[in-house]
């Protein structure tokens, strides 16, 4: 499936990319994270188990076992700090 990926704030800077289109052979957020971690470097470091980050699918925060659908907008970002 094709995913529209977005990265924000500190993670955008660490990854060196704000958005990309990604072709995923998988079904869930956990599958996607495994693919991104396999890129190594900042990806492996920031998305490692136990690190604090959030994943939103179509603009709602979800758990790692959440399913993904073709064409979904998936955002990965640090815990929020507004207000």
């Amino acid at each position: 499936m094709k995913l529209h990926m977005l990265y924000f704030a500190r993670l955008r800077e660490r990854f060196g990319v704000g958005e990309e289109t990604l072709e995923l052979a998988g079904a869930t957020v956990a599958d996607l994270l495994a693919v991104l971690q396999a890129r190594g470097g900042a990806w492996a470091e920031e998305l490692a188990a136990g690190r604090a980050f959030r994943v939103a699918v179509d603009q709602a925060v979800v758990a790692p076992d959440a399913p993904l659908a073709d064409g979904a907008e998936v955002a990965i970002f640090p815990p929020v700090t507004g207000g």
Binding site: F8, A9, A52, A56, F77, P79, T81, G82, G83
Partner: peptide, 22 residues
């Protein structure tokens, strides 16, 4: 709003710029 709304603050300080931690 502080815990759910997707805003992030980056501060400029004399020691350089830094992202605010939750």
């Amino acid at each position: 709003l502080k815990t759910q709304a997707p805003f992030w603050k980056k501060e400029e300080t004399p020691e350089g710029a830094r992202w605010v931690e939750a």
